[in-house]
Each structure stands twice: as structure tokens, then as C-alpha cells.
Simulated assay, not measured.
Amino acid sequence: MRQFKRALPAIGLAAASLFGPAAQASTLSGNATLTNDYVWRGTTQTQGDFSTQAGVKWAADSGIYASAWGSNVEFSPETHASSELDLVVGWSGALSTDWTLDTSLTHYRYPSTTVDLDWTELGATLTWKQHSWLQVGWSNDVLATDATGTYAQLGTRVPLGEAWRIEGAVGHYWLDNAYGDSYSHAQLGAVWAFKAPFELRVTWHDTDHAARALFPGLAGSRVEAAVQASF
């Protein structure tokens, strides 16, 4: 058994003990998204097809939170993968007036597969003034390969009035231990909050040649358009 999988029951018990005292001071939120393509770290997870997604998040005033998010996926036919479920526990809070930190443990599950694709990642995101961020993720079983991998992303968002903003990010995935190579990607998008609680997002994604070689047909240049509702 992989180390992270052995640790999950203990993590669940620890989370339960932490969540209990804060249950009376907490909030529940959620989101639902319809998108023409599910793009994750520069590569499509649906072979360029449409995706419906939904998530729910519980957060205590102490900063502790737990969330679940799901989407349809389409991998190689032999995996029979058709759905993804991300289970997250973490803590988020202010470090100072300008800086906030979000730390998390994410377990990626693919319930419908005939092979073991589940894996777990430790993550942290440092945000400055709510518009620039550095995200780092690490796993000792990256993409269910039994190998280590590290991901880093640097991004920013620029408000253009009350309803519009531009968002951009660059990322790099160190996958040498798992696949013998690493890759980079970039994204640039516009967001229109046209009517609360709805947003329209249009994002251009591109990857380097290493990603195209590692994930043929899944990486490269593509445009993702999505409508999201938050509640």
C-alpha cells in the first residue's frame, strides 16, 4: 500500500477531531460549472469534450475546511475512467494584512476505473493582496505512478471594474521520476461576472513540446469556455 493511502484513515480521524469543536461557527458553500473542456495543469482531462462539475465546501471560522468536488473525465479506454472525485482537507488564513496561506491535502479518486488511478497530493498556496499567488503541490505517488512529483504555479488576477477581470498563470510540473521528463504550461483568461452568482470564463491554455510528447493529443494549445455559479 502507498504511504499516503495508509495515512488517509488517520487523517480522517484527525480532521474529525479538529472539525468538531468548530462546527457551530462555520459556513457551507458550493459551485457548479459547465465547460466545453476540463483542462488541468495544461492538459485536457476529457479529450476536449464537455464537462459538468460541482463542488461543496465546509469552512470553520478557525480556517479549517473540507471540500468535495467532482467532474466527468475521459482517459484512455482501457482505464474505463468516467468520473473524478477530489476530497480535500486543509487550513486557510491570513498571515498579515497582505498575505494569506492555504495548506491542503487532496485525494484524487476515480471511482469507475478498472485500474488504480487514485493518488494524493500535499499543497500550499501563498497569496498576496488577494490577486497574486504561488501554488506548490507535492506527491510521492504523482498521477498514481508510485513516483514523486512536484508542481508549481505563479499567477495573478487584475480587476477591470466590478464585473470584469483578467487572470494569467504559468506552471511547471517536475515529473522526471515518474515519466523521465517535466513540462511547462501557461494560461490567460478573462472572467465576466455578468449576473450574480454566475460567471463566464474564457481561458487560453498552451503547453511546451515536452507536454505534447508526454501526453499526445491531450496537451498543446486549446481554449476553455465555462459558466460557473457559486452559492
Rank of each mutant, 00 (worst) to 15 (best):
A81W: 00
A66V: 06
V56R: 01
S139Y: 04
A59E: 13
V88C: 00
L13G: 05
R165E: 14
V115S: 02
L18I: 10
A22Q: 10
S92V: 01
H131E: 08
S96M: 07
Q53E: 12
L154I: 15
Y183E: 12
A163Q: 13
H80T: 13
Q187N: 14
A229L: 14
E162V: 10
A152T: 15
P21H: 04
A169K: 01
H172F: 03
S184T: 15
H131W: 12
K57M: 09
G168M: 04
G217N: 02
S132P: 09
E162A: 15
L188T: 08
V202N: 13
T207L: 06
L126A: 08
F198M: 15
D146S: 15
A32H: 03
Y65S: 09
D206P: 06
G123S: 06
L214V: 11
T113L: 04
Y183T: 11
G149E: 07
H80V: 09
G217P: 03
G93Q: 04
A163H: 02
D116Q: 15
L214R: 02
A16D: 02
G63W: 11
A7E: 05
Y110V: 00
A16F: 09
W40N: 12
R109G: 11
A16M: 07
G63Q: 09
S26M: 04
A213G: 10
G70S: 14
Q45L: 02
L87G: 00
V88S: 00
L154M: 03
A226S: 12
N36E: 07
R6D: 13
G171P: 03
A16W: 01
D176H: 08
Y179M: 06
T79W: 01
D116T: 15
W138R: 07
A60G: 13
F4C: 12
D61V: 03
T120P: 01
G55T: 01
W40I: 10
V39F: 02
Y110S: 00
Y183A: 05
P111N: 08
Q53Y: 12
V158A: 09
A60T: 11
L143Q: 05
N31Q: 15
G20N: 15
S112F: 06
Y108P: 07
S112R: 04
K57D: 14
S230D: 07
G20E: 05
S92M: 11
G20T: 10
S83A: 15
K129M: 12
L134A: 12
A23S: 05
G123I: 14
F231L: 07
Y151P: 09
L85Q: 00
P111V: 10
G168V: 02
D118A: 15
E84C: 02
P9T: 15
L85F: 01
T103C: 04
A66C: 05
N72Q: 03
A147H: 13
D37Y: 01
T207N: 08
P111H: 04
